[in-house]
């Protein structure tokens, strides 16, 4: 599980030498990474290192020009986004991206948009148990919530699709330090309920403190990988952040 070379016996998600362009701009160059079932992996890196693009490639919003994306043993490289979501991937986007003019309940419902109405009562239950605050606020417009509450809605919305792998893009961005703490507790809680998490973060120490393993991206390439404990000790991590 925590092999130092990052090779897992049977990974849930596996990127195999993925190269991605954004219009004319090359963002990722031969990325290979794995996330095992139930693992919490973080993806670190400075600005414009390609972290968000990696997540978008996994979700299918961006198609790689080369390489393969494998999920639960299947090659999903050519799959459209809805099919991947139905297969068990979900994302909590950067800045949360809630539908501000819709109620909390409607936001959550949209998380399960791919399933028929009436099949998600249990999911509501699960989200409301995890975030009791959302139950209180269910008829309030999402745009009027506080930053912490919005983060809860964003996570709840992603959980509504019953993901096996949760992608998190910069969950602590724009939150106060106290909320960041709380946020990481929630992520850990979600993770402990059996969902694998791939988290993109700039706050390396914080992320590694709850993660199993980590990868470090720099200008589109993975420059460092290993267990969280190793990375925390590593001098190379600091160097990777400061640039080569």
């Amino acid at each position: 599980m925590n092999a130092a070379d990052g090779q897992l016996a049977k990974p849930l998600l596996s990127l195999d030498k993925v190269t991605t362009y954004y219009a004319q701009m090359r963002i990722l160059e031969g990325i290979s990474l794995q996330v095992g079932a139930g693992e919490l992996v973080c993806l670190l890196g400075g600005n414009a290192s390609g972290k968000s693009t990696t997540l978008k490639t996994i979700l299918g919003l961006v198609r790689p020009r080369a390489g393969r994306v494998l999920f639960a043993g299947e090659d999903v490289t050519a799959w459209p986004v809805p099919q991947r979501i139905a297969n068990g991937v979900a994302i909590v986007p950067e800045n949360r991206r809630l539908f501000g003019t819709m109620t909390v309940r409607e936001n959550l419902e949209l998380g399960a948009v791919l399933r028929d109405a009436g099949t998600y009562d249990a999911d509501f239950e699960r989200v409301y148990t995890l975030f009791p605050r959302l139950h209180e606020r269910r008829d309030q417009l999402a745009g009027t919530l506080s930053g912490g509450e919005q983060q809860m809605v964003a996570m709840g919305r992603a959980l509504m699709s019953r993901p096996r792998l949760l992608l998190m893009d910069e969950p602590s961005m724009g939150l106060s330090p106290a909320l960041v703490q709380q946020n990481f507790r929630i992520i850990k809680e979600v993770h402990e309920s059996g969902v694998a998490v791939l988290m993109v973060e700039q706050n390396a120490t914080m992320a590694l403190s709850i993660a199993d393993r980590g990868y470090v991206l720099s200008t589109g390439e993975i420059v460092l990988s290993g267990s969280a404990a190793e990375l925390l000790r590593s001098e190379d991590l600091k160097r990777a952040y400061l640039g080569r």
Partner: peptide, 10 residues
Amino acid sequence: DPSIGVDEWV
């Protein structure tokens, strides 16, 4: 072959 992260237009 532009270097990584460099927009070809630029």
